[in-house]
Every structure is written in C-alpha cells, then in structure tokens.
Design a binder for these strands. Structure first.
Lengths: 129, 129
DNA sequence: CGGAATCCATGTCGATACTG
DNA sequence: CAGTATCGACATGGATTCCG
C-alpha cells in the first residue's frame, strides 16, 4: 500500500478507480486552504464557531460553515452542541483529523525548505515575458 | 485556487508569516490534481507532450498546457524543445520536482490508509439527512 | 506534434441579510 | 451565538478551432 500502488493506477495499463478516487478526494480536501487552516488551528484545542472565525483570518462565515460541515462529514472533526443560552457549539479534531497532521507537516516542511527557490524561479521565469 | 493575501493568526510550529505563505503556495499546487498526477507520471522518466496527455487520463490539452507551464515556472519541471519535424518537446522533473515526491508519498499513504474510513463516515453522515 | 486562442458551462466564494 | 438563504462576481475547466 505504498506509493507504488498509486503510481501504478495512473501510469500503467491497469486503472484502479478506487485508488485514484481516494487520492483525489484527499488531495481536494488537503488542497483546500480553509481545511488546512482549520486543521492547524484545531490541532491545539477545541474551538467554538466564532472563535474559529476570529482565528482563521479572512474566512467568511459561509466558508467556515461549509468547511466544518464537510470535515465533519469526512470524520475529521466532531461537533458538540451545548443547548444553552446563548447556544454553544464546540469543534474538535477527531483521531482521524489528528492523523492528518503528520503528512501535512511533511508537506509544510517541504514548502518551508523550498519556497525561496520557487519564488526565485518564478521571478526568473516571469522576467523573460 | 487563489491563496494570496491571507493572514493566519493560529499558532503552530511553522507559523512564521513567510512559512504560512509558503505552505499555502505549496498546497495550492499540491491540491491541484493535475499537478499531482503530472508529478507522479514524470517521476519515472521524461515524457513528451502528447505522451503525457495519453498517460494522464482525463486531462484536457488546455489543462495539461497550463499545468506544465506553471510547473515550469515554479521550477518543478524542465521543458526541452527539439526543433525537428515533427517538433518534439520533452518534459522532465527537475531536482526540485523530484524532491516533492516524498511529501506527496506520505500524503498518498495517508489517503490509502484512511479513505475507507472516510467513505464510511460520509455514508453515515449522509444517511442522517 | 505541440501548442494558442476563443467560447461557454459550471463551480466557487464573498457579501449581505435574516433566523432561532 | 451559530448558523441559513440568496445573489452576483469571478475563477475553473472542457470543447473546439486554428496554426507553425
């Protein structure tokens, strides 16, 4: 179940729809900036809705709602409602959500290590146009 | 995916503003399924344009062009033109492009390990609606 | 063969307003 | 406080056509 399997699905004659679908599903989730920022934020402790909204600068109420909904659907976060007045809803990373931190971290480290090179490459490329 | 002009106020190990910008830039690239599939395909050997188009099932000519262009701009792939008849253009992963494979692999492994759980979670979630 | 350019459908997202 | 509903702007991406 290593990368070789994934490579096979996209490069050999045999196409495994389930594998491709899984990879794409994960990537579309990980590629979403709001999902990532939410994971990073919730990695520390549970947050309430507006608390998250304040922490994740720039996110709209709509996108936070949609992001949390789909993350809950995927089992990445849990939603705890306390029917008080005012109402209180806490969001928390599940075990699955926490397990996503490690691969995210390796990606983050790659970014940190190479983004300077990438920026220079971009500048050089754009200079020729 | 536009990821510019975002401020993150959450705290984590890699939380410097520059680091956050780098992470977002990388994620916007990794989140693009065509970029990932291109990296995976080119991981094995150089490919020609239409060869890539055939290997990456479902990609349109337009998206392949755009994907290769931006990857070249970022220094992830190199483009070698052989002015013959018919013209020949080879694309190849650069060292930087190859270095992206490792973090991508950890993400792919996460996907393989957990996509069953995620699908079940989705089914269970949707059942309640 | 390896593109570039155009058209157009669909999707994504932010702003705003309203609700329990 | 924690959402839902709606709208319009903009980005994405496929299909098609043309070209050296």
């Amino acid at each position: 179940m290593k990368l070789e399997n994934i490579e096979v699905t996209s490069t050999s004659e045999e196409h495994l729809p389930s594998g491709c679908a899984a990879v794409r599903a994960v990537l579309s989730r990980v590629g979403d900036k709001w999902t990532v920022l939410t994971v990073i934020t919730l990695a520390q402790r549970p947050y309430r809705f507006n608390e998250l909204k304040r922490s994740i600068t720039g996110i709209s109420q709509r996108m936070l709602t949609l992001t949390l909904r789909s993350m809950e659907r995927d089992g990445l976060v849990s939603r705890k409602v306390t029917p008080s007045n005012p109402p209180r809803v806490d969001y928390e990373l599940t075990g699955l959500g926490h397990s996503l931190r490690a691969p995210l971290q390796s990606l983050g480290e790659w970014a940190f290590k190479h983004f300077h090179t990438i920026e220079q490459s971009r500048a050089a490329f754009d200079k020729l146009l």
